[in-house]
């Protein structure tokens, strides 16, 4: 996955619009001269809490246009809680765009995007890019309940075929979204996924059974978010093109190397992970 990190910098953005998509789910539009232009599908940014009271928060870039990007997040702690209090006109500094995004270079023609909960934040940019390239895109969207299937219409409007599942059956199928994927009559040629780790593992299993490749956008606790601290690593086969520069000979008899989710990732090929 091509390195895109040279475009990154600190962007001091202004909140251009704010929408509470569901209770505790916030979409913030960020006015920034060139953050949107620089962002690629699957990249993230580190949002710097204005109070400076806690570490920066890694958030997927939801939308990206010339002078506007957006973040979509679930309030789940004190840092996202602080971000949720921002209003139109407030300032939010962000480092980014960061990480290596989805690799769409193989020009897949029929793609399933699996998004779980807050993972939807990283699903829109690849969906739009694929549709623009003429691909068929199916969104498999899972959430706890109907109200948390946020912004689904946006994906339908963009041209995605929608498949939904909820834990409580209030919308779509009751159960896991990966069960719906598994029942697909016509198999896609590639899967992209973003969501909680158990869902990503299930996606990897389904893709293996389908005999197709999957790209997973991993969720991990970050400290620096830029590759400096080696805190967010994941085991990867040393043969991966994404394996960091590390000695190949003596690895304790193992062919596994730890790659940084924030730097080499956050998107990895499922069949190269050794987790």
């Amino acid at each position: 996955m091509p390195s895109l990190q040279t475009r990154a910098r600190v962007h001091v953005t202004t909140i251009s619009d704010r929408c509470e998509l569901a209770p505790g789910v916030v979409l913030l539009g960020l006015h920034a001269p060139d953050l949107g232009k620089a962002a690629r599908p699957g990249q993230f940014l580190m949002a710097i809490p204005p109070s400076g009271a806690a570490a920066a928060v890694a958030l997927g870039i939801y939308e990206a246009r010339a002078d506007r990007a957006s973040i979509l997040f679930f309030v789940c702690g004190k840092r996202t809680s602080e971000l949720s209090t921002l209003r139109v006109g407030d300032t939010l500094a962000c480092s980014g765009p960061l990480g290596n995004g989805f690799d769409l270079s193989a020009n897949p023609r029929d793609v399933a995007i699996v998004a779980g909960g807050a993972g939807i934040a990283s699903a829109l940019l690849p969906a739009e890019a694929l549709i623009a390239a003429g691909a068929r895109v199916r969104l498999y969207y899972g959430a706890r309940t109907q109200a948390l299937l946020v912004d689904a219409q946006r994906f339908a409007d963009a041209g995605c075929e929608l498949h939904a599942a909820t834990d409580d059956g209030s919308a779509g199928r009751r159960g896991y979204i990966t069960e719906l994927l598994e029942q697909a009559q016509d198999r896609p040629d590639m899967v992209l996924a973003c969501g909680p780790t158990p869902m990503l593992r299930a996606v990897a299993d389904v893709a293996r059974r389908f005999g197709i490749r999957a790209q997973l956008s991993l969720e991990e606790t970050f400290a620096c978010g830029v590759g400096g601290c080696w805190g967010c690593v994941v085991p990867l086969t040393a043969e991966s093109a994404q394996a960091p520069n590390f000695p190949r000979e003596d690895r304790g008899g193992s062919d596994v190397v730890f790659a940084r989710v924030c730097k080499e990732g956050p998107v990895f090929w499922a069949d190269e992970l050794r987790w």
């Binding site: 991990e220 606790t221 970050f222 400290a223 601290c229 080696w230 805190g231 967010c232 690593v233 994941v234 590390f246 000695p247 003596d250 690895r251 304790g252 193992s254 596994v256 190397v257 730890f258």
Partner: peptide, 10 residues
Amino acid sequence: PRLGNPTPRL
């Protein structure tokens, strides 16, 4: 060389 500790690390 050291692979480092198992995850989670943070």
